[in-house]
Simulated assay, not measured.
Amino acid sequence: MAGDTRQRMTEAAALSLRRRGLAATSFTDVLAASGAARGAIYHHFPGGKDDLAEQAVAWTGRRVRAEFASIGGDDPDAVLRSFIALISPVVAKAAGGTSCAVAAVTVEASPAQSALNAAADTAFRSWIDVLAARLRHVGVPPSQASATAQVMVAFLEGSLVLARAAGTVALFEQSASVLLRALTGSLD
């Protein structure tokens, strides 16, 4: 049961990071959203808010990595199209005000919050690694697969920021079609 409380708190923190960012995420909000008792905070997260945020970033990183691992396609173009289809609803949510918990921590954590920065770096690298592996699986050379995977993650994160700022997915739709045209055929 204690593991359930910790998990509920971690997931509530991840959602708060997506909606409010690191600075505005509070224990009060996390406790209310998770249904946890106030005493659970330092029992499950002895390092306080940074510990909670670090766990939320790690959980988000694993969840997104698993989604990326499920991307289908028998050739590079199909993998890119599957990636765009997978992230499209996430970008739509960003247009409505939510974003990425990992990016929120990346932008707001100070250099002194090295554990938070390391957790974000680990998450991003795991996404790049799984996307690069997927591209290699469909025949993209390793050096090109890694660079393309980096572009894919940068495209996702940039699209989230632009959609949230504009309140629309229009820029995502335009840039997705340009990205597909630019990369189509270049990965063979």
Rank of each mutant, 00 (worst) to 15 (best):
R8P: 00
L131Q: 03
A145F: 01
E173Q: 15
F45Y: 08
V161I: 12
I128Q: 00
S114W: 06
G96W: 04
G35D: 12
S146A: 10
H44W: 04
T98A: 12
A132F: 02
S177A: 08
T106N: 12
Q113D: 15
A120C: 10
A2R: 05
A95V: 04
Q7K: 12
T148R: 05
R20W: 05
V107W: 10
W127M: 00
V130F: 09
G48A: 10
L156V: 00
D4M: 08
T28E: 15
T5E: 14
I128L: 01
A24D: 15
A133C: 07
A78V: 02
G3R: 08
Q55S: 12
A23E: 14
A170H: 14
Q113E: 15
L156Q: 05
A95R: 04
P76W: 02
A40Y: 07
R65Y: 03
A40C: 12
A23C: 04
A165H: 10
R181F: 04
T28S: 15
T10Y: 02
R38E: 15
L162R: 11
K93D: 15
G47N: 09
P89W: 08
A115D: 15
T5F: 04
T10I: 01
L86C: 07
A133P: 01
D188S: 14
E67N: 11
R125E: 15
A78Q: 15
M152G: 05
A58T: 10
S126E: 14
A154V: 02
D29T: 08
L86E: 15
S82R: 05
T10R: 01
L31F: 07
A163I: 01
V140F: 00
R65P: 02
R181T: 10
A120G: 13
P89L: 09
S70W: 04
A109N: 08
A104C: 06
A56C: 06
A33W: 01
A32P: 06
F172P: 02
S82D: 14
G139V: 00
R134N: 13
A13N: 11
T25V: 02
A118G: 07
L131F: 03
R136C: 10
I84T: 09
G139I: 00
G21E: 12
M9G: 03
T5N: 09
G72T: 12
A182V: 05
Q113L: 06
V169W: 07
S99T: 05
D29C: 03
G96V: 02
K93F: 07
G185L: 09
A24L: 07
G96H: 11
T60Y: 02
K49H: 11
L31T: 05
D121C: 03
A58H: 06
P46E: 10
L131S: 04
E173S: 11
L156E: 00
V79W: 06
V140W: 00
G48C: 05
F124Y: 13
S88Q: 14
L179N: 11
K49F: 05
S82H: 12
A115M: 09
G72M: 04
S175M: 12
L31M: 10
